Amino acid sequence: MTPKEFREVCRSGDFDSNSAGYAPGYAQANLVILPKEHAYDFLLFCQRNPKPCPLLEVSDVGNIEMKRTAPGSDIRTDLPKYRIYEDGVLTAEVTDIKEYWKDDFVTFLLGCSFSFEDALENAGLAVRHLQEKRNVPMYRTNIPCDSAGVFSGNLVVSMRPYKPRDAIKAAMITGRYPNVHGSPVHIGSPCDIGINNINAPDYGDAVTIHPDEVPVFWACGVTPQAVLLASKPAFAITHAPGHMFVTDLVNESLACL
């Protein structure tokens, strides 16, 4: 599917799977929607934490169309699945947010590591969760983000296992994509970053890690969801982990030479 076709299928309500592997070659984005009163604080949070929160687009107040990254889109319907947070509590998962929408909402689109997976595969580095047809495993860590206004909390990471030599290659490849999380934040022992059980991710699905492989961890756009739970704003909307907004941006347009 093209990005537009993917968004249209989501809009019809006929698709609620995760978006990994769909619209190959095009950038997928994490989503955060907040009332205007908290928008500046979150913008500042993103500016201070560019690894987990690389900004692709920020909407005008009340605008449902992502004009710069996906003209003609409707942010209320064009994702497979959304999460609703009230006072820091996850209260619902839904396939559209029309009934929740208010005219003072500001939408943030953040780069997603799905966007550098094409480059990994093109370099001969298989992506395990795609091989196993699963959602990428994601974990809460003990690494604090830089606070901004009402927002504070710890980093969330995604994980892909590789042999040590391939982990170095993966780090070099993904380092060219700072707009979609860039190079890894940690390679090796999960315990060093507060992950006690690599086989029990906090979000997504566990994947096979072979004895000759090491886990490689990248900053993840699910970090704002952990921050929302910790910071407890009155209201917020995000994507469900792995259920991304597919933009019209070509992945390679986000790479640095």
Rank of each mutant, 00 (worst) to 15 (best):
225 Q>S: 14
112 C>M: 09
200 A>L: 15
112 C>D: 07
156 V>Y: 04
255 A>N: 14
75 I>H: 04
7 R>N: 07
224 P>Y: 13
50 P>S: 09
33 I>K: 01
194 G>S: 06
15 F>E: 08
157 V>S: 12
196 N>P: 01
115 S>A: 15
81 K>T: 13
227 V>F: 06
197 N>K: 14
46 C>P: 00
130 L>G: 01
22 Y>A: 10
143 I>C: 01
94 V>P: 00
104 D>F: 13
159 M>T: 02
129 H>L: 03
235 F>T: 09
207 V>S: 10
109 L>Q: 03
135 N>R: 07
211 P>G: 09
251 N>Y: 08
25 G>T: 14
222 V>E: 10
86 E>T: 12
49 N>E: 12
92 A>H: 08
106 V>D: 00
3 P>E: 13
71 P>L: 05
168 I>M: 09
148 A>K: 08
129 H>C: 03
107 T>R: 02
8 E>Q: 15
82 Y>A: 03
251 N>G: 06
118 D>Y: 09
120 L>F: 02
158 S>A: 09
134 R>I: 04
140 R>F: 15
202 D>E: 14
43 L>C: 05
1 M>I: 15
253 S>A: 15
81 K>E: 10
42 F>Q: 07
213 E>D: 14
51 K>Y: 12
14 D>Y: 11
15 F>L: 12
34 L>Q: 03
137 P>A: 06
176 R>P: 00
167 A>S: 10
158 S>E: 05
242 G>L: 06
5 E>G: 01
171 A>W: 10
207 V>P: 05
169 K>V: 03
100 Y>F: 14
238 T>A: 11
14 D>W: 10
20 A>Q: 11
114 F>E: 05
186 H>R: 14
178 P>G: 04
166 D>Y: 08
101 W>A: 04
53 C>W: 06
47 Q>I: 13
166 D>W: 06
132 E>V: 00
135 N>Q: 08
112 C>A: 12
177 Y>I: 07
160 R>V: 04
145 C>D: 06
215 P>V: 05
244 M>H: 01
138 M>P: 08
184 P>M: 11
226 A>R: 07
4 K>W: 11
20 A>S: 13
249 L>D: 10
182 G>Y: 10
118 D>T: 12
213 E>F: 08
63 N>G: 00
57 E>K: 05
11 R>T: 10
97 I>Y: 00
3 P>W: 10
248 D>Y: 01
10 C>D: 06
31 L>G: 02
144 P>V: 08
25 G>A: 13
178 P>T: 05
42 F>N: 05
98 K>M: 10
177 Y>P: 00
221 G>L: 11
191 C>W: 13
216 V>R: 03
79 L>K: 03
28 Q>E: 13
123 A>V: 03
1 M>S: 15
149 G>N: 11
147 S>L: 03
212 D>M: 07
186 H>I: 11
93 E>P: 00
134 R>Q: 14
185 V>I: 15
189 S>Q: 10
24 P>D: 05
162 Y>V: 02
97 I>L: 04
126 A>I: 04
92 A>L: 07
85 Y>Q: 02
4 K>N: 14
137 P>T: 02
54 P>E: 10
103 D>E: 14
18 N>H: 15
240 A>Q: 08
137 P>N: 08
